[in-house]
Structures are given as C-alpha cells and as structure tokens.
Design a protein around this nucleic acid. Structure first.
Lengths: 221, 221
DNA sequence: ATCAGAACTTGACGGCCGTCAAGAAATTCA
DNA sequence: TGAATTTCTTGACGGCCGTCAAGTTCTGAT
C-alpha cells in the first residue's frame, strides 16, 4: 500500500501538496471492516470524520419507532460525519459495510486544526455538504409529496442517467431500496411489475432493469 | 441604520473585526421585501448567498407534481443559498417573506473570495450546513417512516422545547405547517382535535396550544 | 452440484390519510 | 366596528399502500 493512499484519493484534500498529505496521513487512523459489519455503531467513536478509502458503506438512521431509513450509499472517496464538525452533536446514524471496506478516520479536533491550517479543505467540505443538502432537500420534497410509484420511477431514471445506460443492475437489495425511498419491498416489487406490464421497463434476472420508455416513466405520478 | 448593521448580526461573520466587516459591507447588496412577496424567484439572481437581516422567510421547494414543500423558516441572521457556493447548481427553491423583510446578498464569486481570505467564515458556514444536514436527515427519516400523528406530536414537543414553554402560538398557518410536515391542513386539524380529546393538549384561540402531557405526546406513534 | 437460507413475488385485507365539500371561525382592511 | 376574505373544522368517501402470509426464485457456501 502506498504511503498516503487513503488521503490521496479523497477529493477534499485534492488541492494539497505531497508534504501536506504526509501530515494528514500521520494523524489518520485506519480501519478495516468485513462485508456486513457495522461501522460507527454505539460503541464506536462519535467524534470523527470518516473517509471511505475502499469499498461501499450504507448509512442508516434509526427512527423513533425503530424503523431504519437509508440515507446515503457512500462510495470510495466519500466522507461522512457532520458529527465530526461540532460538539454536542449526537450521532443519529450508523453505517454498514456493503463489501469489505477500508475506512480512515480523523478526530474532530485534528480535523478542525486541519481546516484552520488549510482553508481549501473547509471549502471543499462545504461543496460536499452543499450538494448533499440539495440532494436531501429534493428527497424530502419527493418523499413528502409524491407517490411511491413516482418516487420509484424517478429513482430508476436518475440511476440510469447517472450510469449513462438504459440497462443496469439495481445497486441495492429491494429492502434497502425500500427504506431509501420510504416504502416497503413488497411495494417495490409491485410497482416494478406494473411498470413492466405498462411496457416501460423490462426486468431481467439478477436485479437488472432495462428502460424501454424513459419519457413515459418520468410522467408517472 | 448603523453602518454594517446587516453583516454584524450574522453569526458566520462573528469572528471578524470591525474593519473586515467594513470590507464585507462594501460588497453586500441590500434588498427589502414587503410581507407576502417572493424572494429569489425565477427572475432573481441564482448565484448569491442570502442573509436575512430582519424579518422571516419561508423557503419552499416545488415538487414535480406542482406541490410545494416548506423546507425552512429562516429568522433574522439566518443564511440561505447553497446555490451560492458552486456553479451549475440550479436553484430549486424559492422564498416568501412572512413579514416585511430585509435581505442582504453576496455574489458567489465575492463570497468565495471572502472564504479564501477569512477561513473562519467557511468554518462557520460549515457548522450551519452541518446542523442543517442533521436536521434534514431527521426530517427525511421522520417523513418516510412515521405517521402524520407522530410527526405532528414531535413537531409540537420540539417547538415547545425550543421556546422553553408549554404554551405557545404556532408560528405557521396550518397550510404551511402541513407542507412542512408532509400532510394536509385537514389532517392537522383532525390530529390536533384528537390530541385535545385525549387530554394531551388544549387549543386556544389564535393558534395557541398548551401542552398538558408532553410525555404521553412523545409516545404517539 | 446441491442444499439451506435469504430475498423476492403475489394475493388478500384493512387502515391511514388525502380529497372534496360545506359550514364555522378568525383575520384583515376600510 | 363591520363586512369581506381567508383560514379552519368536520364529515363522508375512496384509494394508496403497508401488513401478513404463503409460495417461488435467487444466492452463496459446502
């Protein structure tokens, strides 16, 4: 493993030079989680910024009634932890490794020092947070005002657009997709079957979906 | 009006000295909106950070189906505009003055310069964004997994806790409260009537509510 | 390849809550 | 203060979708 492999691939450090990356590397802690294990659960530190060095992490939040809400699907290079940035912030979410995953963490106080020293970091984090805010705002509006059918149709078209292909594999199990969209696995199954009957999509084995009529799909209410 | 009245009361500039505030004041643009008018609508600039200098602003987002979602209720000193921070970011929300309102705006490029010059600003904005992220995450989880009844009960207890009183006036019309909670004015009326029948609250004229049993209210599912 | 367990699908049912409508209450403005 | 307009309340109804259950397909480990 190269010296600062972890911090090198993180966009928020992209403006920094090699010797600065060395500094950061020296205060970073490394962790490895096998697939299926829980990150920053109840027993993990609540005061660190997490960087996904390699792998995929699902971030959930627990509702008062015990249900889970999938908030983010973090990829390599993504960060998590608004909790890292201010005190008195209880962590209300937990992560789960989707595949074997490497994570780096930086303690809050260390990260605050870094931001003071290298302003480009905080501006980069600001960009990340800003985009995430926009995403969450759209998600709230969508969950609160649109039908399950419309939300699923939207998700399919957005995923296809992001992957730039009409045929793709759903990156999540139906149960996770359901908690992400605020519905149930059963409803997802039913709506996908409906879309197929309407000729909008074709379902293939292995959670693969082919979009036949993206325009019509977007009109779903 | 004092020289930098506007920038003075904004927490994100709190670490700056008087001469620095002067600098900022010189690049700020001032606006006034009468109650009921629309801020940063289709014809307004999309590339500025907005600071509420005086008044209250409701920030809405428009869903694909034409419905409105109330995202924030901004108070004096609050800021809005993740749109200010990066390019290619379409504004998807609009504001409406609840009362006669004064607003200052700073263009994106000017604000980016400021953050480069004074790192404390970006760290402060980061804190604002971080708290807002946490709030939105909780709101998503709540909207997606809990009943209207539970969401309303939560809203009432949280508002009471924030105001540190058991008797308070709802700061929003039922229609706005409804779009905020992802429901309808009718459902709000019905659920409040239900809470009153259960002895949990008492409704008084003028949208005033008295909480009689906060513990039981929190147990609402 | 085989088998056990997980994930998925489909049906039936019911309840929450959104919609429409009409009357009551509250607020605004002259 | 009084009238006009907006907001709110309550009832009736229906549909979306969540829940439970049982059968089927998929997946992954031995």
């Amino acid at each position: 493993m190269a010296e600062h492999e972890c911090v090198q691939l993180v966009p928020i450090f992209s403006e920094l030079g090699s010797e600065q990356l060395d500094t950061i590397e020296s205060i970073v802690r490394h962790h490895h989680y096998p697939a299926g294990s829980t990150l920053f659960g109840a027993d993990d530190p609540l005061d660190s910024l997490m960087i996904v060095a390699n792998g995929q992490v699902k971030v959930y939040q627990l509702a008062a009634n015990g249900r889970e809400q999938l908030l983010y699907l973090l990829q390599t290079g993504d960060i998590d932890g608004e909790a890292a940035l201010f005190e008195n912030q209880r962590r209300t979410s937990f992560g789960e490794a989707l595949v074997p995953t490497d994570v780096c963490s930086i303690r809050r106080s260390d990260f605050q020092d870094l931001m003071q020293k290298y302003p480009s970091i905080s501006i980069n984090v600001l960009n990340v947070f800003g985009k995430r805010l926009s995403q969450l705002e759209r998600q709230i509006t969508s969950t609160a005002t649109e039908s399950v059918e419309a939300r699923l149709a939207n998700y399919i078209t957005e995923t296809a657009a992001a992957l730039k292909t009409d045929t793709f594999k759903l990156p999540l199990k139906k149960k996770d997709l359901a908690t992400f969209l605020g519905t149930t696995p059963e409803s997802i199954s039913r709506k996908l079957a409906l879309f197929e009957r309407q000729g909008l999509i074709t379902q293939k084995p292995g959670k693969v979906i082919e979009i036949n009529n993206a325009d019509q799909l977007l009109l779903t209410e």
